[in-house]
């Protein structure tokens, strides 16, 4: 290692790719959540009475006390903005043509919060703690994925 490279094009490198494809199972609770979202346009959570905590999306177990839960607590569509960020760059740091607002909204009746885009931001600057609403796609466009939600919009 006494000889140092002085020209970058002298570096020998081999380009490779990692071919990865996968199938992700949302699980029993995830299935109930996405089915309710698709068929009824609602958010289903799971209530843990002993922890006094409502998860959303629904889940089969409580991470706090390890109890088994059921997916039957309907929450939202109104809620409050827990935090937000304005994204100016894409995944690899490339500048975005239009900045994108991303929000974290705690739906009414839930303790957990959901991450999604903020649509229809309007002229007023966003403020943590303000009222928001979950915007669900029209019935015929929903397929049972997180994209069945268009995003959040401020409601005052």
């Amino acid at each position: 290692m006494l000889e140092k490279l002085e020209r970058p094009d002298e570096v020998r490198r081999w380009k490779g790719r990692i071919p990865v494809s996968h199938r992700y199972t949302p699980g029993v609770a995830g299935d109930v959540f996405f089915t309710a979202l698709r068929d009824r346009g609602v958010l289903l959570g799971s209530r843990c009475d002993s922890c006094d905590y409502t998860y959303v999306p629904a889940r089969l177990f409580c991470e706090r006390c390890f109890a088994e839960l059921s997916a039957d607590a309907e929450v939202g569509p109104g809620g409050r903005l827990v935090s937000f960020t304005i994204s100016y760059t894409g995944l690899e740091g490339e500048p975005l043509e239009q900045p994108v607002a991303i929000g974290l909204v705690r739906p009414d009746g839930a303790d957990a919060a959901i991450v999604h885009r903020i649509v229809e931001t309007g002229d007023e600057p966003l403020e943590i703690g303000q009222r928001m609403e979950v915007v669900v796609k029209p019935d015929e466009e929903r397929t049972g994925s997180i994209h069945d939600i268009d995003g959040f919009r401020p409601t005052g």
């Binding site: 996968h22 992700y24 999306p57 994204s87 760059t89 991303i102 991450v115 885009r117 997180i146």
Partner: peptide
Amino acid sequence: PVLNRPLGISTLN
């Protein structure tokens, strides 16, 4: 992969 990744959000976000 089911809840967050489809939205295209980054770790910077």
